[in-house]
Simulated scan of single mutants.
Amino acid sequence: MRSFRWPPPPDGGPRTWGPGPGGPRTGRPALPEPETELVATPHGVRLERLVTGTGDPVTVFAHGLGNGIATTRPFGSGVAGRKVFFQFRGHGRSDSPPGPWTYLDLARDLRAVADLGGATRAFGASLGAGALCRLLAESPDRFDRLVFFLPAALATPRTEVARRRITDLLGAVESGDASLVADVVSVELPPAVRNTPAGWAYLRQRLDQLLRDGLAPGLAGLADQVPLGDTATLARVTAPALVIGCAGDDLHPAAVAEELAAALPDATLHVYDRPGVLWSERADLRERISGFLNG
């Protein structure tokens, strides 16, 4: 398979290479982005929010660094009740107050959105998982069910590979160069998915959002920080938790998921055997998350 290339073929491609038909193959178009709202919080930071679904329970979804509502929504596709998605400070249309920012600031963002929406359950991915841990260190009984997807750091800083990836993404977005952003974002895709209709659809959606809304420079300082001083602070959390890790993921080492599961008194750990689970294990992942939260 050829390596990733930008810009995409003008007719939407990609084309098949080698013998056989050479016509373009178009993927399913991305769904239009829903209308969001800006909500005021008690700590003075306006945050972009989207609420979907009806009834109880209410689950709040916290995204990863450089991601947002669009990339977090698939995790809630099978979850019952209302679902509250939002953008942390520095992402999307949310405010970017003067820094430096810490995980305590992110925990305040998460708590405010959860309180405003009446959420009793929480999902955190990567950076969002760290913010959720920080919130629980202060309020261990805030939620009655918890899901942590690919936690990136706990009491030990992120790896050098992860910090460099974050720096590259922020620098590319700041430059406004679509090809440079595409090069960085394409690393999120498994090699088998790049240059496929599904891969192009994902890449276009990510580029549209990042080049439109940008990412605040204040996010760079979070790459060197940790959510917790000591994982022992999570021993007071009694809510059932599902921790999902992935072997071979440089940005989210499986060891971090294992450490988090060991620190939580009532945790179930599942580690996928290869990275890219949003592409290779989407149905299983959706059923695993919804089954746990709905249960």
Rank of each mutant, 00 (worst) to 15 (best):
residue 138 E to A: 15
residue 169 L to M: 06
residue 182 A to K: 11
residue 212 R to A: 09
residue 160 E to C: 07
residue 138 E to R: 14
residue 181 V to S: 06
residue 180 L to N: 01
residue 145 R to C: 13
residue 215 L to I: 04
residue 193 V to W: 15
residue 130 G to P: 07
residue 226 V to A: 06
residue 187 V to Q: 08
residue 179 S to P: 02
residue 211 L to N: 00
residue 139 S to N: 10
residue 155 A to S: 12
residue 176 G to P: 01
residue 138 E to W: 04
residue 162 A to F: 02
residue 189 L to D: 08
residue 134 R to M: 10
residue 227 P to Y: 14
residue 187 V to N: 07
residue 230 D to N: 08
residue 213 D to N: 11
residue 199 G to N: 06
residue 231 T to E: 14
residue 171 G to C: 04
residue 215 L to G: 05
residue 144 D to R: 13
residue 136 L to D: 13
residue 221 G to E: 15
residue 201 A to M: 11
residue 145 R to S: 13
residue 190 P to G: 09
residue 188 E to Q: 11
residue 140 P to C: 12
residue 164 R to Y: 05
residue 151 P to K: 13
residue 193 V to Y: 12
residue 151 P to N: 15
residue 181 V to M: 08
residue 178 A to R: 12
residue 218 G to K: 04
residue 130 G to E: 01
residue 155 A to R: 06
residue 200 W to L: 15
residue 174 E to L: 09
residue 221 G to L: 11
residue 129 A to D: 03
residue 147 V to F: 07
residue 234 L to G: 06
residue 185 V to K: 02
residue 200 W to T: 09
residue 210 L to I: 04
residue 189 L to P: 00
residue 172 A to R: 07
residue 162 A to D: 02
residue 129 A to K: 11
residue 139 S to W: 07
residue 216 A to S: 15
residue 203 L to A: 08
residue 161 V to M: 13
residue 158 R to P: 02
residue 235 A to L: 05
residue 141 D to P: 07
residue 232 A to I: 01
residue 162 A to R: 01
residue 162 A to W: 01
residue 201 A to G: 05
residue 214 G to Q: 10
residue 209 Q to S: 05
residue 236 R to Q: 15
residue 169 L to A: 01
residue 183 D to N: 00
residue 218 G to V: 06
residue 178 A to K: 05
residue 175 S to N: 05
residue 217 P to H: 08
residue 206 R to D: 03
residue 222 L to D: 04
residue 138 E to P: 13
residue 196 T to P: 06
residue 136 L to M: 14
residue 174 E to P: 03
residue 210 L to R: 07
residue 220 A to E: 10
residue 228 L to Q: 03
residue 223 A to D: 06
residue 210 L to G: 00
residue 157 P to Y: 07
residue 156 T to A: 09
residue 222 L to S: 01
residue 228 L to G: 00
residue 213 D to S: 08
residue 162 A to M: 00
residue 216 A to G: 06
residue 177 D to Y: 12
residue 132 L to P: 06
residue 138 E to D: 13
residue 202 Y to E: 12
residue 168 D to K: 00
residue 215 L to M: 04
residue 230 D to E: 10
residue 150 L to P: 01
residue 202 Y to Q: 12
residue 205 Q to V: 02
residue 168 D to E: 11
